[in-house]
Design a protein around this nucleic acid. Structure first.
Length: 517
RNA sequence: GCUCGUGUGGUGUAGCCAGGUCCAUCAUUGCGGGUUUUCAUCCCGUCGACCCGGGUUCGAAUCCCGGCACGAGCACCA
């Protein structure tokens, strides 16, 4: 019955067009006509669940084992943007609890804060350093041991792995509170070497997910051989929390309401939720994003970059070939471009690979309206001007932005430079100057106005240009391209556009670093 | 192996939870054209996608089941 009616309606729609039905509805039952707009793309980041404006606390927690990379920018930008949008707070937390595998780098504590601020456009509301908080973590270990939901385990890694896959309890699991208390003191006082004892969170060895079975919370590190790089910490502690424990406790202590992180940490969330249950705490809302690769770079690991720099493969963290924030900003990528880029990708759990062209297009949108045009002549050839009497020519600094005014170029010397490769044509127009006929090394003035469709090239006057260098990465090599750079009074780090070449950034009086086409 | 997650044009992304004007959004890239004294910017046009197979339903990108593919976790790294 209903089916028949619907079929009838559908047929009407096909025969008479949807308009017809809409009209009937409008006259007979207007309340059924729910306005559903044509599809619109959602703008901005998705809403946070359970978020009360003014009470949202988020955090970004890098290991300071190097300065920030392109990938870290996502964490800062997304978390920071939510904090801003919800009038909440962003915590910058240094998770520097490993002194052996990924040891922290002293300089990174400073540089990360600066880079974070550059990326965000504001200063993180709180800064926490995990290595300052070890005593607090110890206090929570003691609660855990006393509460019977943690124990000191003396099994080797291999032994425990066998228990984990076999879903069997390890012998240490039945330690009494007193046993654990005593063993804990022994961990602290140096009776155990690294690997001889760990503190575990007691969950359940029969849990479906093997990752969650009695997971390790703290371990011993040889901080005599590998002292913590912060002098105030150095060799002070032997027992260090692992990420899952440290992060869980700290998030609770700081009142974090929302955690947004990589989906590789999904099991971390599950482990931490089990710990929160033991403590009687409630876990923050969590969101995840997938892994990002950039076509041109592949993946990027801080540890690998650090090795390559130490081996001299790269100049340093700010090397323009490196996907670090320092490298990117040094080549003229703007913080706003990075922000827009990451916000556009959002927080999907898909693993993706994006082309650099996407980032570049964001950067062009930020930079182009205000980037002064400036000429750089590669492989310069000196030409003598004939038949032009005026002392100078005025060239607009920006073709679409008159506010930037004109560049007055003195040509009274009668000598200009042009690019050698442009000289395959003998009839040329020097941009904003005039039409010329080239013969040997003389350029004879023809007309100020355009007389034909001859090719337009860029040029510099000898007296208003200097020897300069364009620094450009080509095939993973840093190339220093010498030429003549138009004289300018632009300050350092000004984004410019080299006419007919591409965008760049002033890196010294006579040096420009190439950004992109 | 166990566990978890993801699959929309070349690349990203919206829509999916609350099935119907979704012959699927927006951006980027490619291609074509226009403006322009830059091979830039800007503008216009155009190509191009719901992983596969079943099921539920009058109707499925959207719900269910099963495959397949890819990724991650199972570290005394973060």
């Amino acid at each position: 019955m209903i089916a028949k009616k619907v079929a009838q309606a559908n047929k009407l729609a096909v025969d008479n067009g949807v308009e017809y039905l809409v009209n009937i509805l409008e006259s007979e039952a207007p309340e059924l006509l729910q306005k559903r707009e044509k599809q619109v793309k959602r703008v901005g980041l998705p809403e946070l669940v359970n978020a009360e404006p003014g009470k949202v606390v988020l955090r970004f927690a890098p290991n300071p084992n190097g300065p920030l990379s392109f990938g870290h920018a996502r964490g800062i930008i997304i978390n920071g943007d939510y904090a801003k949008e919800y009038d909440g707070e962003l915590i910058l937390r240094f998770d520097d609890t490993d002194t052996t595998v990924k040891p922290p780098l002293l300089e990174a504590y400073q540089s990360i804060q600066q880079e974070a601020e550059w990326l965000l456009g504001f200063t993180p509301h709180r800064v926490i350093i995990a290595s300052d908080r070890i005593d607090t973590y110890y206090a929570h270990v003691e609660i855990m041991l006393d509460g019977g939901f943690g124990y000191v385990c003396q099994c080797t890694g291999d032994e425990f792995r066998t228990y984990r896959v076999g879903m069997k309890n390890c012998p240490c699991r039945i330690n009494t509170v007193n046993d654990n208390r005593q063993l804990w003191q022994q961990m602290l006082d140096g009776s155990f070497a690294p690997g001889e004892a760990v503190v575990r969170v007691k969950t359940d060895m029969t849990l479906k997910n093997p990752a969650l079975r009695d997971w390790p919370a703290l371990r011993i590190q040889d901080t005599i051989t590998n002292p913590h790089p912060r002098v105030s910490i150095g060799s002070k502690y032997r027992v260090w929390p692992l990420l899952d424990f440290q992060s869980a406790v700290e998030d609770h202590l700081q009142g974090v309401t929302h955690i947004i992180r990589g989906k590789d940490l999904m099991d971390s969330t599950r482990k931490q939720k089990l710990l929160y249950q033991h403590f009687g705490w409630s876990y923050p809302e969590t969101m995840y994003w997938g892994r990002v690769k950039v076509h041109e770079w592949g993946g990027f690991s801080t540890s690998q970059m650090r090795k390559d720099i130490e081996h001299g493969k790269y100049l340093g963290w700010e090397d323009p070939r490196l996907p670090t924030i320092a490298g990117l900003s040094g080549t003229g990528i703007q913080a706003t471009a990075l922000r827009n880029f990451w916000k556009e990708l959002g927080v999907t759990q898909k693993d993706i690979a994006v082309p650099l062209a996407t980032l570049y297009s964001h950067n062009i949108k930020i930079v182009d309206d205000d980037a002064p045009r400036i000429a750089f002549v590669r492989d310069p050839v000196k030409l003598t001007i004939e038949g032009f009497d005026e002392a100078d020519v005025a060239v607009p600094t920006h073709p679409n932005n008159a506010e930037l005014g004109d560049r007055i170029i003195d040509v009274s010397s009668g000598v200009v430079y042009v690019e050698r490769s442009d000289l395959v044509n003998k009839s040329l127009r020097l941009k904003e100057f005039g039409d010329f006929e080239i013969s040997g090394t003389t350029a004879t003035f023809v007309s100020k106005e355009r007389t034909d469709k001859r090719k337009i090239i860029h040029w510099v006057s000898q007296s208003t240009s200097d020897d300069g260098t364009l620094i450009q990465v080509l095939n993973d090599e840093i190339c220093h391209i010498n030429g003549r750079l138009e004289s300018h009074s632009l300050s350092l780090n000004t984004p410019v556009q080299l006419e007919r070449i591409g965008y760049g950034v002033i890196s010294a009086d006579n040096k420009v670093v190439f950004t992109h086409d």
